[in-house]
Structure formats: C-alpha cells, structure tokens
C-alpha cells in the first residue's frame, strides 16, 4: 500500500504545483526577510531618540499570533474594502471597478502571501542579526576604519562576514519555519484561488485532516524530509563554525 500513495501523489498536478509553490514561497520570503532584516538592524544598532518605541513598533508582527496578524491583512487586502485599493484609486493608479483582487488572482495572491509571511518573519530575523552585530567587538570595525576601509567595505568585508554564522542560523531557522508552516496561507487564501497558492504543508493538511485521507496526507508531508535534512546539515555545520556546539 505504501508506494501506491507516493505514486498517486507524484501524478497529482496539485501536488506538483504545491511543491513548486513551497520553494517559491520559502525562497522569496527568506530573501526579502534577509535584506529587510539587515537594513533594519543596521539602523537599529545605533542609539537615537525614540529607539525603544521604534523597536516596539517593529517587533509587533512577530509577537502577535500569526493567525491574528494574517486576519488583519485579510481585511487590508479585502476584495471590496481594501485600504490599499482606496489609496491607489485616489492616486488614480487604478480604476475603481478594476482594482486588483489581492487574494483573488493567482499571481497577486502568491505575492500577497509571500509579503504577509515576510512581514511576520522580519522582526525575528532582525533581532537575531542585531544580536550578531552587538556581539562584534567594537575594536574591529574601528581597526578597519583606521586601516582605511570606508562604510561599505567595513560592512561587506568585515562585519557581515563576521556575522555570517549567526545570519546562517537566522536564515536556516527561517527556511525551516517557512517551509513547514501554512498559517498565513490557510487564513488568507486557503490555498486558493484554484490551488494556486497551495504549499506542501497546507496540501497535507487539507488532504490528510480535512479530506480524511491520512495516508496521502502523510505521503505529501514526507516530501518535506529531504529538504529538511539538507537544511539541518547546513545548520549544524554553520552552528559548529559559530561554536554553538
């Protein structure tokens, strides 16, 4: 019985689509998170008036339960009452009756779930990278400045490489979490429209739990394992380099 589940899964176009979506969803959101978190950490590491408050605002998406933050976005991206569309219409960028359906058109829906997931993951990555930055002894960037390195050389040749192990940890955590989570997608689109935003975890859930086909659900989620093993291996290597273990 075992193999039959796998072959039936592999021939299922929805599954293949979900597999591809999983990669798109993970890679795109992690790239956005990484760039955003580095920018934010760069800004937040300096003392400035109002820093505590800024930090509070920036952390909100992480501490609020994901499902609840996603509901907030569902309202912001509503098909009729979207505030984004209201602004776009007022700016004459779109026409009132052909405003984008953020969660109703396949490409836009995928973009929306990626952005909302990025929104949720960004603060945590920022906190980790910020911690990495504070862990660099002050002497080292100073030495680089005296050695004649400008702002960008200091950042790209000294600080970021020194933080690489901890950035790796942040990325790998993010990859694992993103690859195996379905909350944002479940709330915003339920995998729709027409399964175009379905990812492996959500497909496993819909098939295994809601569709009551436990065996096929399990078969779908098994496909997550090879990737997770690879990620775990990478993670341990970089953790070892960061002298975590």
């Amino acid at each position: 019985m075992g193999l039959k589940n796998f072959t039936s899964v592999l021939q299922n176009p929805t599954f293949l689509r979900a597999l591809r979506n999983s990669f798109v969803f993970t890679v795109a959101s992690q790239i956005l998170v990484l760039v955003g978190a580095n920018l934010l950490a760069l800004v937040l590491k300096n003392a400035f008036p109002g820093r505590r408050f800024a930090r509070f605002l920036i952390l909100l998406p992480w501490v609020a339960p994901v499902s609840i933050g996603s509901i907030g976005w569902k309202w912001i991206l509503d098909s009729l009452y979207s505030v984004i569309n209201w602004v776009l219409v007022r700016l004459h960028l779109v026409k009132e009756f052909s405003a984008p359906m953020w969660l109703g058109e396949p490409k836009l829906a995928m973009m929306s779930v990626i952005l909302v997931h990025t929104w949720h993951m960004l603060p945590f990555a920022t906190v980790i990278i910020l911690a990495g930055w504070t862990a660099i002894p002050k002497d080292i960037p100073e030495a680089a400045a005296v050695d004649g390195a400008g702002f960008f050389r200091r950042m790209f040749q000294i600080e970021l490489p020194m933080m690489l192990p901890i950035i790796n940890v942040a990325v790998l955590f993010g990859v694992i979490f993103t690859f195996t989570d379905m909350t944002v997608i479940y709330i915003l689109t339920r995998g729709g429209p027409y399964d175009t935003t379905q990812v492996l975890p959500s497909l496993a859930f819909f098939t295994g739990i809601l569709g009551s086909d436990l065996a096929e659900g399990a078969a779908i989620s098994i496909f997550l394992v090879p990737l997770l093993v690879a990620v775990a291996w990478l993670m341990l290597r970089s953790a070892h380099r960061a002298e975590v273990v």
Partner: peptide
Amino acid sequence: LTPRQRRIAMVFQSYALYPH
C-alpha cells in the same frame, strides 16, 4: 577627516584582528 583619510596606523589593545 575620517580615520581612513588620516593615513595612520593603529594597534589596538585587543589587536582587533579580523577573525574571519
């Protein structure tokens, strides 16, 4: 002038070698 424009060299107490 920034440190890099001053064309000086400095040795720190911790040596501040670039660990990577």
